[in-house]
Simulated assay, not measured.
Amino acid sequence: MEQHDAVANLDRMRAIAAYDLFDPGLAGELRSICRRTADRLGLPLAAVQVVLDGATAVLATNDENDLLTTMGGAPREHSLCVNVVQDRAPYVVEDLADHPEHADNPGLLLGLIRAYAGVPLVLPGGEILGTHCVMSPQPRPFGHADLAELRTAADEILRLIVRH
């Protein structure tokens, strides 16, 4: 039996297309939230990413000059955010090097990402837009308080996106 692909779901894609996600004003507001999240969690990278059927697109990060922003996103097969959309739940990896399914992730191989935590951005219709996530080049545990901070910021992010 073939597994349902929540990421490529046509209804989800239509829901995402209804929003002006690349509005420059929105990016600035999202960047402020990412900066706050990165500061509060003491991590070098916080991001808002929309997960599309074949790739992720970066809507904002805490540092507009970081590699993730420069690249604009990542192919689906290298994105950790895809797991959030597929499972409709937070996805946490304290050390990518300990997980064989992430062994060939370019971020890990280049020494850019060892730890990841992401929470879903749930649109008013229930579709998962993407993630608010944090990453670290060092292994790092994520506790309940970390996920609560991400969820609080995700709620604020959704209010901004719906408003735009």
Score class of each variant (00 low, 15 high):
Leu52Trp: 06
Pro24Gly: 04
Thr37Cys: 11
Arg35Pro: 05
Thr70Asn: 11
Val50His: 08
Arg35Trp: 08
Thr69Tyr: 11
Asp63Pro: 01
Gly25Thr: 06
Leu43Gly: 03
Tyr19Ser: 02
Val50Thr: 12
Pro24Val: 07
Ile33Val: 10
Gly42Arg: 05
Pro75Asn: 11
Ala46Asp: 01
Met13Lys: 13
Ala46Leu: 02
Arg14Phe: 12
Leu67Asp: 14
Asp53Lys: 15
Met71Ile: 11
Leu26Pro: 00
Gly54Pro: 08
Tyr19Ile: 01
Pro75Gln: 14
Ala55Asn: 13
Val50Ile: 14
Cys34Tyr: 05
Ala15Val: 07
Gly25Cys: 02
Thr61Asp: 00
Cys81His: 08
Arg31His: 11
Met71Gln: 15
Ala74Tyr: 08
Leu45Trp: 05
Leu21Ala: 01
Asp23Phe: 06
Val82Tyr: 07
Pro75Ala: 15
Leu67Asn: 13
Val58Glu: 00
Thr56Gly: 08
Ser79Asn: 06
Ile16Ser: 04
Leu52Lys: 11
Ala57Ser: 12
Gly54Ile: 10
Val51Ala: 03
Thr37Trp: 02
Asn83Glu: 14
Leu67Lys: 13
Asn65Asp: 12
Val82Phe: 06
Asn83His: 13
Val51Cys: 05
Met71Ala: 15
Tyr19Arg: 03
Asp23Lys: 04
Leu30Phe: 05
Pro24Ala: 09
Leu59Asn: 00
Cys81Thr: 07
Gly42Lys: 04
Ile33Asn: 00
Gln49Cys: 15
Thr37Ala: 13
Ala47Thr: 11
Val82Asn: 08
Ile33Ser: 00
Gly73Glu: 00
Asp53Phe: 09
Ile33Leu: 14
Val84Lys: 04
